[in-house]
């Protein structure tokens, strides 16, 4: 993710995704390539899928990366992995909040209330709690190595129990969220009654947001390494 080309490319890519996702018309039976189908019960509000689902996806991916880097730290005892782990978790928290807020606003207009403990709202809330607890733990330990290993252990424990909530429960339980067990589509969230153009925009948005996340992650890791180096220089004086 270095060099000017990537930054410009990503900016253009995401701008196109946002413009196309917001502006293409939604019609009952799409004929041309520039029309989205109307999904019954969602209508224009279905456009949130281009922005809400990628943020939720990144919130989970970041959690996975925090856990994997945590395991690497425990195996190799290299503080660089701890920087990677905490950078991923920090960004994950941001995207988790974004997913929760966009979801709650959407819920207000589609379900009539910002919050009503739908299984999926419960699961994103728990994910947010875990991120919060992870940082509460980190701030309570002074020694770098101890902080790294304990937070890695916590991330792993959370990761093995949370799939119950994030992946299994929302699909088993009946809920109002598109893609839950009582939804007629019944499949994973992404393939409910989307046609090809909508699907392409959705996937492009997913790719764009993931690249944006990786770019931010890269920056944070570099910053973290500089801080670590600076600390070690200071302690030598």
């Amino acid at each position: 993710m270095k060099g000017k080309f990537w930054k410009i490319f990503l900016g253009v890519w995401l701008s196109i995704v946002i413009i196309v996702g917001m502006s293409l018309p939604m019609v009952p039976s799409p004929q041309s390539f520039f029309e989205f189908p109307i999904i019954p019960g969602l209508e224009e509000k279905a456009r949130i899928i281009f922005f809400h689902v990628p943020t939720a996806w990144i919130a989970v991916i970041a959690f996975l990366m925090a856990m994997v880097n945590g395991i690497q730290y425990l195996r190799k005892n290299d503080l660089e992995y701890d920087i990677r782990s905490s950078s991923a978790a920090g960004l994950g928290l941001v995207f988790c909040v974004l997913a929760t807020v966009t979801g709650a606003i959407w819920a207000k207009f589609n379900w009539g209330a910002y919050w009503n403990w739908d299984p999926r709202q419960t699961s994103i809330f728990v994910l947010m709690l875990i991120y919060g607890a992870y940082f509460a733990l980190r701030s309570a330990i002074d020694i770098d190595e101890k902080r790294a290993s304990l937070s890695a252990v916590y991330a792993i424990i959370a990761f093995v129990t949370v799939p119950f909530l994030v992946f299994i429960m929302p699909r088993m339980m009946t809920g109002l969220h598109p893609g839950s067990a009582s939804d007629d589509g019944a499949g994973p969230v992404v393939d409910f009654s989307m046609d090809t153009p909508m699907y392409i925009v959705f996937i492009s948005s997913l790719i764009g947001f993931t690249l944006l996340y990786l770019w931010m992650y890269e920056l944070r890791v570099r910053l973290g390494k500089i801080e670590l180096h600076y600390e070690s220089l200071r302690s030598h004086d």
């Binding site: 728990v126 607890a133 309570a140 304990l150 252990v153």
Partner: peptide, 27 residues
């Protein structure tokens, strides 16, 4: 038990314990 082992090494043990345990215990 495992959360207790983690928080025993941290500073603010009393408040941290329910904070760390709750998300794990929620399922």
């Amino acid at each position: 038990t495992i959360i207790a082992a983690i928080i025993a090494k941290a500073n603010s043990k009393g408040t941290l314990y329910p904070v760390l345990s709750f998300p794990i215990l929620l399922p």
